[in-house]
Design a binder for these strands. Structure first.
Lengths: 251, 251
DNA sequence: CGGCCATTTGACCGTTATCAACCGTAGTGG
DNA sequence: CCACTACGGTTGATAACGGTCAAATGGCCG
């Protein structure tokens, strides 16, 4: 049995019920294939490269992973972020290559496993497959939202949306502490996620702080002070967002 | 049996082998559920609304469908385009709502069907499921590419990329005529796809024409004149793009 | 003909990128 | 304890890119 680190600040506001989802998927997989073992990677290490011929799923146990694509000149865009409990299909079935890189944004623990591990007839395999399909569908919804903000929104909207997306997702896995959460990305990476320059990310965040929308002592722990203002700027309804980009777990 | 319209100009350059994919998925589905019938919608009609509680797949037989999301003020972004043969899961399994709208960009013929239609144990159902999974994976790869260009690229890059993406995809289903293809979108819609204003789309296309990169008599039929220049501007390798965003079909 | 719609073009301006300088913090080695 | 370095954040100046507004053009259709 893989023990489940105590990592969490798991505070008041979180919907703790859903935190079980993380262990759920993990439990299913281990029940099915006890021989699979946990892997680790350090912050900034690249777990898989765009174009690599990796044929497997990742199930993230702890930490953050950024999925990115880059232009030839090095300009990079994060396509999605994996948070604890998220799973991803790195290469579509068949002979194709990974469409993006996976980089550890913090120290991470994860499980990697091939398609063959889960396409058996066991009920546990079936449940795991449906978990993975739903995770792909949720990712598609998240990427759609990102496309909308990045394509049509201002810097203010993009940043406020990114903060809220992360807050809502972390809340769902019990990784928030009231309105506070840990954001293991620097401003450059936040820019790569929102399609902005690091400088403009900085300016925008500073403006948010001046306007008492967020506070942060150390730039890595964010507290949302005025979540209403943030939602207005991001042009979202918080509950609708939750329903859309947070996995609903079967039990 | 649904007869298969002669719609196509199916000219020299296309990789005609793959055009069978369209009929393949269709054949599988009909073999499985003969009672399913084809539906039609006219240009500009909305087939499904963002947030609707549609629980089904769409399999597009002919025409183009735009998948879009909108901000409250009406600003719209196309998240992906469906071309003939493409399938999509409109709502993730379970109780969730459609994350985007589907609008007919041209007159279309399609098939809609529920999950229950394809989760049986028949081999045909299994093949269809895997076709749908791979179609979701390909869509994810395409959306990743779009995010990269829209987040990091210039208008020139976004437009050249969009043209090449569509060319490559149409080519794969035998809907190109040499370097020419039919593009049933106005400049406003092209802007919604690339995250640009209609005015800037116009300017950029005009520049491409002045530079002899493309030509177009009527704005709806595009001919790529200098595909090398287009690839340079889009920062892509054409074969790599094909491998990434065009479905590879089993037979 | 007149109305409608999409495209085109010019003028103007705001947002955001870029460049550069400076600062604070943490880590390293004397 | 201090010098030195590295890194990320902050801030200002400047410029470019692309949005907005407005007007003109042109095709299409009643």
């Amino acid at each position: 049995m893989i023990s489940y680190g105590s990592a969490g600040m798991n505070g008041g506001g979180g919907r703790v019920r859903k935190a079980s989802g993380l262990t759920l998927a993990q439990r299913m997989l281990l029940e099915l294939r006890p021989q699979i073992t946990e892997q680790r990677a350090n912050r900034s290490s690249v777990i898989a490269h765009e174009g690599d011929h990796v044929s497997h799923f990742l199930l993230l146990l702890d930490g953050w992973i950024g999925l990115s694509k880059a232009l030839y000149d090095g300009q990079t865009q994060f396509v999605d972020l994996l948070l604890p409990g998220d799973a991803i299909l790195m290469s579509s079935s068949g002979a194709s290559a990974a469409p993006f890189s996976a980089e550890a944004l913090s120290d991470v623990r994860y499980i990697a496993f091939g398609e063959e591990m889960i396409n058996g007839p066991e009920p546990a395999a079936a449940r795991l497959r449906s978990h993975l399909v739903s995770s792909v569908a949720i990712r598609q919804a998240r990427m759609s939202e990102s496309l909308l903000r990045i394509g049509q929104g201002s810097a203010e909207m993009r940043i406020s949306f990114a903060l809220l997306e992360l807050f809502v997702r972390l809340e769902a896995v019990g990784r928030t502490d009231g309105q506070k959460f840990h954001l293991p990305m620097n401003q450059r990476q936040l820019g790569q996620f929102t399609g902005l320059s690091n400088v403009h990310v900085c300016r925008t965040l500073r403006r948010f702080e001046r306007n008492r929308v967020i506070t942060s002592a150390d730039h890595i722990d964010i507290e949302i002070v005025d979540i209403g203002a943030l939602c207005d700027m991001a042009d979202i309804d918080l509950d609708a967002l939750r329903a859309e980009i947070v996995p609903t777990l079967p039990d």
